[in-house]
Amino acid sequence: MAKHHVSFTINGDPTEILCETHATLLDVLRDELELTGTKEGCSTGDCGACSVTVDGRLVCSCLMLGVEANGKAIGTVEGLAKGDKLHVLQEKFLEHHALQCGICTPGFLVASKALLEKNPDPTETEVRYWLAGNLCRCTGYDKIVRAVMDAATVMRGA
């Protein structure tokens, strides 16, 4: 099976890989690059655990071929913290106890970051609809929504 030479950036770092045609971006991240922070919950785009950004757009990495990533800028949960400083969203998820098992957390964080970059002052309803593609079976979403709203307040400098 021919492999494709694919180059892109991950969280700003230039990366090159050889990728099988049918491999998804999720496969590439987890299996080739060992960036296992991005999770696989369904591989059919229904759970959001594999959320990443591609050129700033929020997508399910399970629904994109690795070869399509050529030349793109990929953002994953591993890129949220800068050095030893957590992102405000990460701090707020901890402060509000917005996770139980934590498997959906990376996807929620990446999706929430994409939301706040686009809409720094979302209503609760906007947060809920934006995150509707991220399934959480533990929390009932309550504390997640609170954490995102609070992070938005802090990030606005309010």
Partner: peptide, 9 residues
Amino acid sequence: IGSTQIQGR
């Protein structure tokens, strides 16, 4: 059509 993530594609 689908979630925010799906909308991205």
